[in-house]
């Protein structure tokens, strides 16, 4: 019997929450299909970080270059670890998961399931539920327990926080590399506002349509005493700086109020804001996935709504 292997990510020397969630699920599945659980971790802090996890085995690659994620080295290290019998690999759907999941599956000639939000056993079969089509549809997929990679969307289920004492194994990584990391670029929070500190966020998406309309959002945010944030397309269009982006590749926010305007709610965006205390979404598409996480919603025209709401708020204050 091969392992159910979790590829863990480290953040500031500790195993990330999404990775802990995967360990919980690996143990739950492992108990049902009689498979041991292993965890893999990279970098000089990996041995300390992994030693108390609820796994039977822990594989660590201590290379200093892996103190920060390095695609080529991490892939080579993972392929080395997979020399040990492994039936299923779980990876968080982060940059690492996007890099390693499909390529390792291809190199091993294994099956792959992406964007998983749940894993369960049905009889003898592992069944994954995945989000596809921008979160508008879900797919129920059978995962063969004879070698498969599943990338999982962070926050899909809670971690049980159980501890253990896995047998530690040190694995070597190759030294000759084709890829060199020139520098790490830290998040640019210092150059702009820090949206993670805002109590109220007026967050705009594609529905803003034109950079000139951002002024309406700024005025509304000012009237609310909040800040303007956005979804990925607004940053990619160059209309707002990256520091304003909420979501998987941006910031994770938990404000008291998240006013989502013209944001459809792609899974990558929801990942960064679904835990806000109060979510109010305005989107012309009544079927937009954002309404599944919002507390209140409206299909009003956001460009018409913003000035009217600003006026009401200003009138009330005055």
């Amino acid at each position: 019997m091969g392992h159910i292997l979790v590829v863990a990510e480290l953040e500031n020397g500790r195993v990330s929450d999404p990775s802990r969630e995967l360990i919980t699920k690996a143990r739950e599945l492992g108990e049902q299909v009689n498979r041991p659980v292993a965890v893999a971790g990279f970098g000089p802090a990996a041995a300390d970080a992994l030693q108390n996890l609820d796994a039977d085995d822990a594989y660590v690659v201590k290379d200093d270059l892996l103190a920060e994620y390095h695609p080529e080295l991490a892939e080579a290290a993972l392929l080395n670890i997979l020399q040990n019998p492994t039936d299923l690999v779980l990876v968080p759907n982060t940059t690492m998961g996007m890099d390693l999941g499909a390529s390792v599956a291809a190199r091993r000639n294994w099956s792959m399931v992406a964007y998983c939000t749940d894993l369960a056993i049905d009889g003898e079969t592992v069944v994954a539920r995945s989000q596809v089509y921008g979160g508008k549809l879900a797919a129920e997929v059978e995962v063969p327990l004879t070698g498969a990679v599943v990338t999982v969307i962070p926050g899909s289920w809670p971690s049980d926080g159980r501890r253990g004492s896995p047998t530690m194994h040190e694995v070597s990584a190759p030294s000759a590399l084709n890829m060199t990391r020139r520098r790490v670029i830290e998040a640019d929070a210092g150059n702009d506002v820090d949206i993670t500190r805002a109590d109220i966020l007026v967050s705009v998406g594609r529905g803003i349509q034109d950079p000139d309309n951002l002024e309406l959002a700024e005025e509304l945010a000012a009237a609310l005493g909040g800040m303007v944030s956005c979804s990925r397309p607004v940053v990619d269009a160059g209309w707002l700086p990256r520091s304003r982006q909420v979501g998987k590749s941006g910031k994770t926010v938990k404000p008291k109020v998240y006013l989502a305007l013209g944001i459809s709610g792609a899974p990558e965006h929801l990942q960064g804001m679904k835990d806000a205390d109060l979510i109010i979404a305005v989107n012309s598409d009544a079927n937009a996935p954002i309404f599944d996480v919002a507390h209140y919603g409206a299909t009003a025209d956001m460009l018409e709504l913003m000035p009217i709401l600003t006026e009401k708020l200003q009138g009330r204050a005055g």
């Binding site: 890829m179 990391r181 929070a189 520091s243």
Partner: peptide, 14 residues
């Protein structure tokens, strides 16, 4: 390459 949380890294690849 974009990591999470706005952090990034610059790479050079053959």
């Amino acid at each position: 390459q974009e990591y999470s949380g706005g952090k990034m890294a610059e790479f050079d690849l053959a």
